[in-house]
Lab assay of single mutants.
Amino acid sequence: MEQATVKWFNAEKGFGFIERENGDDVFVHFSAIQGDGFKSLDEGQAVTFDVEEGQRGPQAANVQKA
Rank of each mutant, 00 (worst) to 15 (best):
G35R: 01
V26Q: 01
E21V: 12
T48C: 11
N10T: 04
E43M: 14
K39E: 06
K65E: 06
D50Q: 14
A11M: 10
N10V: 04
I18R: 01
Q64I: 12
G57N: 03
V28R: 02
E12Q: 14
Q45S: 08
G35V: 09
G23I: 04
E19R: 15
E53M: 15
E19F: 13
F49M: 08
S31Y: 06
W8R: 02
G23Q: 09
E43T: 14
A46L: 15
V26C: 06
N10A: 06
G57A: 04
H29T: 02
F27C: 07
F17A: 00
G14H: 03
G16A: 05
F27N: 00
D24P: 15
G16W: 05
G44I: 03
Q59G: 04
A60S: 04
A11T: 12
K65Q: 09
L41D: 01
H29D: 01
Q55E: 12
V47N: 03
V26I: 13
A61Q: 09
G16F: 04
Q34G: 08
V26W: 04
D50H: 14
D36M: 12
I33S: 02
K13Y: 10
Q55V: 13
A11H: 12
D42S: 14
D42H: 15
H29V: 04
Q55H: 13
S40M: 10
I18T: 03
V6R: 01
V63K: 01
A61I: 13
R56A: 09
A11N: 10
D42T: 15
A61C: 11
V51K: 04
E19A: 15
F49W: 01
F17D: 00
K7S: 05
V63T: 03
Q34D: 07
N22K: 11
V6A: 01
E43K: 15
F17S: 01
K7H: 07
G23Y: 07
A60E: 00
N10R: 06
A66R: 12
A60F: 03
V51M: 11
Q3M: 13
T48F: 13
A46T: 13
F15P: 00
E43R: 15
K65W: 09
G57I: 03
Q34A: 11
P58S: 08
V26A: 01
E52D: 06
P58V: 10
A4K: 03
F38T: 07
T5H: 13
Q64L: 10
G37S: 07
V63R: 02
E21W: 12
F49I: 05
K39W: 06
F17I: 06
V51G: 01
Q45V: 08
K65L: 13
W8D: 01
G35M: 12
F17C: 08
F9Q: 00
A60K: 01
S40E: 07
V6Q: 01
E2L: 14
G37E: 07
K39T: 06
D50P: 02
A66Q: 12
G54I: 03
G44P: 01
V28H: 02
K65Y: 10
V47S: 02
K39Q: 09
M1N: 11
A32N: 06
D25I: 13
V6E: 00
E43Y: 13
E43D: 10
F15H: 04
G57E: 03
E53F: 14
G54M: 07
D50T: 15
G35Y: 08
F38I: 08
T5F: 14
T48I: 12
Q34Y: 09
Q59S: 07
G16L: 04
T5E: 04
Q55K: 14
N10C: 12
A4R: 04
D36L: 12
H29K: 04
A46G: 09
T5G: 03
D25V: 13
A46D: 08
G14C: 07
M1L: 11
G57V: 04
F30S: 04
E53K: 10
P58G: 05
E2V: 11
Q3G: 08
V28G: 01
F49Q: 00
V26L: 15
S40R: 11
E53A: 10
D25N: 12
Q55R: 15
S31T: 12
I33G: 01
I33A: 02
S40W: 15
F9G: 03
G35C: 11
V63W: 00
W8K: 02
A60I: 01
A32G: 07
T48P: 01
N10E: 02
G35N: 07
G44F: 05
Q34P: 05
A66W: 11
T48G: 04
F38E: 07
V63M: 02
H29W: 07
V63H: 03
L41Q: 03
I18N: 01
G37I: 06
R20D: 04
K7W: 03
I33C: 07
Q59Y: 13
A66S: 12
K65D: 08
G16Q: 03
A4Q: 04
Q45N: 06
T5I: 13
V26M: 08
L41R: 00
A66Y: 12
G14K: 01
E21T: 12
G23C: 07
F27R: 01
D42V: 15
D24E: 13
Q3W: 15
K65T: 10
A32Y: 05
F9N: 01
A46I: 14
Q64E: 09
Q55G: 10
E52P: 01
E2R: 11
A32M: 05
G54H: 08
E43F: 12
E21I: 12
K13M: 11
V28W: 05
D50K: 13
D42W: 15
F49N: 00
E53L: 14
V51W: 08
F15G: 00
A66G: 10
K13P: 01
A61Y: 10
E53I: 15
E12T: 13
F30G: 00
H29S: 04
S40L: 08
V28D: 02
N62M: 07
